[in-house]
């Protein structure tokens, strides 16, 4: 959901992006999978056959059947419904992380890239934040802030902000030397107007690409934190908490763990494929690096 909005904005009436994506079968496939997952999550209350926390102890640990397509868990809850509702939380966490990290990252990156004096200190700050491995920093931040959904979003947002910041800074350095930006500066256009009108608009492509990858990473990171028991509280259904809870029944009732796992892999892989395709199309210069 967060991924689709900036794409249309960045193309600004240009049809070639859609056409370009259509020429790439993997990207088309990824887009369809992603659209399905997002649609299911948004329409959870209509799509999910049961309420996600409806307990039915009598029908616990039932295998996939026509009544319960994905089977039931140890509380007799419908795994399909839970996977759908969990997707809502997992995707919302991923999407919010994208928003938070981009807000922080774009601000830092713009300032560092545009104002030469700020570049040194801000770049060092970005370097310092990049020095912490993502899960480790996220664990420490969640431990400091307290384990709940909002703080997990905040922590992961901070963790991924430097990635956005680096890309934005690099692009800003190029953009600020462009002829019409220099012209605007020479004409005395206020700096904030230059930043908003000229620079930010040109940043749409690299940010979109980066946002897609952050989205994918955030979904994986949330699952990892939940698995370790230091993320979202286990009674909030996310794909990560479902797997963590289902682990005990891996042998008896693998479906509890399989379906949320498949949902993670499908979503993350689709996002990565989309990200690669977008990068090739929007920003050929970056295509060969990370």
């Amino acid at each position: 959901m967060a991924a689709s909005a900036p794409i249309s904005a960045s193309v600004s009436g240009d049809e070639s992006l859609v056409a370009g994506l259509m020429r790439r079968p993997p990207a088309v496939g990824a887009a369809i999978v992603l659209a399905l997952v997002i649609a299911a999550a948004l329409a959870a209350q209509w799509v999910a056959p049961y309420a996600p926390s409806k307990l039915s102890i009598a029908s616990r640990l039932q295998g996939p059947s026509l009544v319960h397509l994905f089977g039931t868990d140890e509380f007799g809850r419908d795994v399909l419904s839970r996977t759908i509702w969990a997707g809502r939380v997992s995707l919302a966490v991923g999407g919010s992380v994208v928003v938070v990290s981009c807000l922080i990252g774009v601000t830092l990156g713009l300032l560092a890239g545009y104002f030469r004096r700020l570049d040194g200190p801000l770049s060092r700050l970005i370097d310092a934040m990049m020095a912490f491995p993502d899960i480790l920093l996220a664990i420490a931040l969640v431990a400091a802030l307290g384990p709940n959904v909002v703080n997990v979003v905040l922590a992961l947002g901070i963790v991924y902000a430097p990635r956005a910041a680096r890309v934005v800074r690099a692009s800003t350095l190029v953009i600020r030397e462009l002829a019409y930006v220099e012209a605007a500066r020479a004409l005395g256009v206020p700096t904030y107007k230059i930043l908003l009108r000229h620079v930010l608009r040109n940043l749409a492509s690299p940010i979109t690409v980066q946002a897609t990858f952050i989205f994918a990473n955030a979904i994986l990171a949330e699952a990892g934190l939940s698995f370790l028991g230091v993320g979202v509280s286990p009674d909030v259904p996310t794909w990560g908490t479902m797997i963590a809870m289902g682990r005990q029944f891996m042998d008896q009732a693998g479906w509890i763990m399989w379906f949320p796992g498949i949902a993670i892999v499908a979503s993350v892989m689709s996002l990565q494929v989309m990200g690669d395709a977008l990068r090739d199309l929007l920003d050929p210069r970056l295509a060969r690096t990370t």
């Binding site: 307990l55 509380f75 286990p234 009674d235």
Partner: peptide, 16 residues
């Protein structure tokens, strides 16, 4: 706590 998984499971059912 989830040190004893059955504590946690009873808590979930009790919650409902």
């Amino acid at each position: 706590s989830r040190q004893y998984e059955f504590h946690y499971k009873m808590a979930l059912v009790a919650q409902e």
